[in-house]
Amino acid sequence: MSQVLSIQPLPFDPAFEQVPDDEPETIRELGEAIRVIIETTYRDTGHAMRGVHAKSHGLLQGEIQILDNLPAELAQGAFARPGAFPVIMRFSTNPGDILDDNVSTPRGLGIKIMGVEGARLPGAENQVTQDFVMQNAPAFTAPTPKAFLKSLKMLSKTTDKAPSVKRAMSAILRGTEAVIEAVGAESPTIKSLGGHPETNLLGETYSTVVPLLYGLYYCKVTVVPVSAELAALTDAKVDLSGRPDGLRESVNEFFATHDGEWEVRVQLATDIEKMPVEDASAIWPEDLSPPITVARIRVSPQPAWTEARSGVVDDTLAFSPWHGLAAHRPIGGVNRSRKPVYEMSAGFRGTRNGCPMHEPQTLDGLLP
């Protein structure tokens, strides 16, 4: 027998999305800023990389198990039917250039589920994947694409500037953030500029930060480490001194001997004022709608990052919230801007590297 929800989710109304008249121009400028980043890194390295989250730290293959007996409101889209599906997880940090890990920035997680059936999003026809693109934060750093554009333009101008200065500035910002967190607050801006604490990224909770449809409703999705060994890494310090790839090394070290398990949780919106669609910076209150577990991801011990795996995941796969089912259509301005910008970035990588992006049908033989 299915469970019964303790909340009343709010059905999605198309009127919840409000598109500004100048949004196409904002999206064009966002694309130009990302283009500056990817062209700069390509000129400097001879290899095309993502405009954001260029550096990967963990490239894992595993399995996602959709739970039995979900409430009808939660048995939607990719989670409509119980069963096991192959999954790829890509852990990263957010700059578009490859920096030493002690330039400490927010972390990202891309998830690609394979074998998902159902009506598809535009541009995702004939695919069987469902992607979730996440950050280790409960909300986005800016409320709107236009607000985000200001910081992106600034970052694009510093893409290949003075790595030593970035390391020194990151140390200063980490100290500033530590002072702020000591009084029970935090600064997403300081974290995004290099002030993120030097902690193990495997202990983080990741969120879609912006909403997506969930069948008739809308939600945010989170991924939470729950196996004892992973949970113990929450806020665990990592010594990155003299270790430019220390985060990657810590992920490899962990999965050399441990498995890992995460819960996938869904926070259904219940109040349009407190859980808005167009303000991407809004933190949705969990007392109004606690995240509910709908699936579990399990990963066995494996080589978590290798050059060969990077050649597959980093160079031939793209992660986008627009790869998926119509039941999980991304909503809100930040998500609307992602579609053309992500497509441009993926196309640039495919053309420059001579290896077009593709969506896998199965995990079989995909990762070396």
Rank of each mutant, 00 (worst) to 15 (best):
Q3G: 14
F12N: 06
E23P: 04
E23G: 05
I27P: 01
I37C: 00
H47L: 14
G51N: 05
H53D: 12
E63L: 11
Q65Y: 10
L67R: 14
L74E: 03
A75Q: 11
R81K: 10
F91I: 13
D101T: 13
D101M: 10
N102S: 11
N102W: 09
N102F: 09
R107F: 14
G108F: 03
I113C: 00
A119K: 10
P122A: 13
T129F: 00
M154P: 00
K157I: 08
T158F: 13
T159Q: 08
A162D: 13
S170I: 09
R174I: 09
A182D: 05
A185R: 15
E186V: 09
T189D: 15
T189Y: 12
E198D: 09
K220E: 02
V221T: 13
V224D: 14
E229R: 02
K237H: 12
P244D: 02
N252H: 01
T257C: 08
E263D: 15
V264Y: 08
V264S: 08
A269V: 05
T270A: 12
S289D: 02
P290Q: 14
T293C: 14
Q302Y: 08
E307N: 05
G311H: 12
V312Y: 07
D315K: 13
L317T: 05
F319R: 07
S320V: 09
R329C: 10
P340W: 02
P340N: 06
P340Y: 01
M344E: 03
C355E: 14
L366R: 05
L367G: 02
L367A: 04
